[in-house]
Computed example of a mutant assay.
Amino acid sequence: MQVLQVQLEVRPDPAEVGRARRWARSRLAGSGIGADESLAETVILLVSELVTNAVVHTGCPAVLRLSLPGVPAEAATVRLEVADASTRAPVPRCAGDDATGGRGLALVDGLADRWGWNADGAGKRIWCELDRCVPPGEASAPTACGSQAPVVCEGLAYEAV
């Protein structure tokens, strides 16, 4: 499968978060993932969370990378990475009801199929992946996302455990 990898340099300025969302939205559309797909909405929310974390918590420039499927109709994985120059590990927090922040990594954990982080040179890279399954009714693959009996809900894959 062909994968398109694109990246955007992000300055340590909160206004960059909106620019990163617009950039990601246009790259998703260019790869055939429509703005009305729940996958696109989820990717944009995750871009917003991870870029915000990089801008707010590190004060350093960052790089946003997207790995997108080359053929829109096939089952594939969208990967999102944000690399920054801070060595400080991401720490999920337990935000209280009245807290105005602290929910970003919980959102990433709840929305992404997989996520993690690793050291990257003098900094770190936080990544997450979302699986995109073949829409119901398309016969291009016998099973979506490699499972025996996949459940497909608005373009996102869920595995019954």
Rank of each mutant, 00 (worst) to 15 (best):
L68C: 08
P92H: 09
G123T: 03
S140P: 01
A29W: 10
G121Y: 02
V152Y: 10
R19Y: 04
R22K: 08
E138F: 04
Q5R: 05
G59R: 11
L46I: 12
K124S: 02
I33N: 07
A76S: 15
A73M: 11
E129N: 04
P69T: 08
V151I: 14
E37K: 10
G137M: 03
L130H: 01
I126V: 11
A141K: 09
W115A: 05
T143W: 10
G32H: 11
S140A: 06
V161F: 15
D13V: 00
C133T: 04
A24V: 06
L66R: 10
R103S: 05
S26P: 06
A149N: 14
A29V: 13
A160W: 15
R125K: 09
A29S: 14
P135R: 10
H57F: 12
S38L: 14
L45E: 04
A62G: 09
D97M: 10
W117C: 01
L39D: 08
R93A: 14
T52L: 03
A160L: 15
A73H: 12
V6C: 00
P150N: 13
A15L: 01
C145Y: 08
L50I: 05
T87H: 13
W23H: 07
D120A: 04
E9N: 02
V63S: 06
G155K: 10
S140Q: 10
D113I: 03
E37I: 05
E159D: 15
V152G: 11
G101R: 12
T52I: 02
C133A: 11
A144N: 05
P61I: 08
R27W: 08
V161R: 15
G96R: 14
E154A: 14
E9A: 03
A89I: 11
D131K: 08
R11I: 00
L4G: 00
P14T: 00
V3S: 00
D120F: 02
K124W: 00
N118F: 06
D13L: 01
T77H: 12
V10W: 03
N53T: 06
Q148Y: 11
N53M: 08
V108T: 05
G116T: 03
P72C: 09
C128K: 02
C153D: 15
D98G: 09
R132K: 13
E81A: 13
G32R: 10
A54S: 14
L130A: 01
R11N: 00
A89Y: 09
A24K: 05
S67Y: 11
S67M: 12
A144D: 05
P90F: 09
G121L: 02
A24Y: 06
D109Y: 10
P72N: 08
S48N: 12
R88V: 14
C145E: 06
V108H: 06
Y158I: 15
A62I: 10
G110H: 12
T143L: 08
C128E: 04
Q2P: 00
I126P: 00
C153I: 15
V134H: 02
D36R: 15
G70E: 07
I126G: 00
P72M: 07
G70F: 07
D97P: 14
L66I: 12
V51G: 07
R11S: 02
L68E: 07
L130E: 02
V47D: 09
R21M: 08
V108W: 04
L68P: 05
T52F: 03
A75K: 05
G101Y: 11
E37R: 14
K124G: 03
A20M: 05
L8D: 01
L50M: 15
V161N: 15
L4H: 01
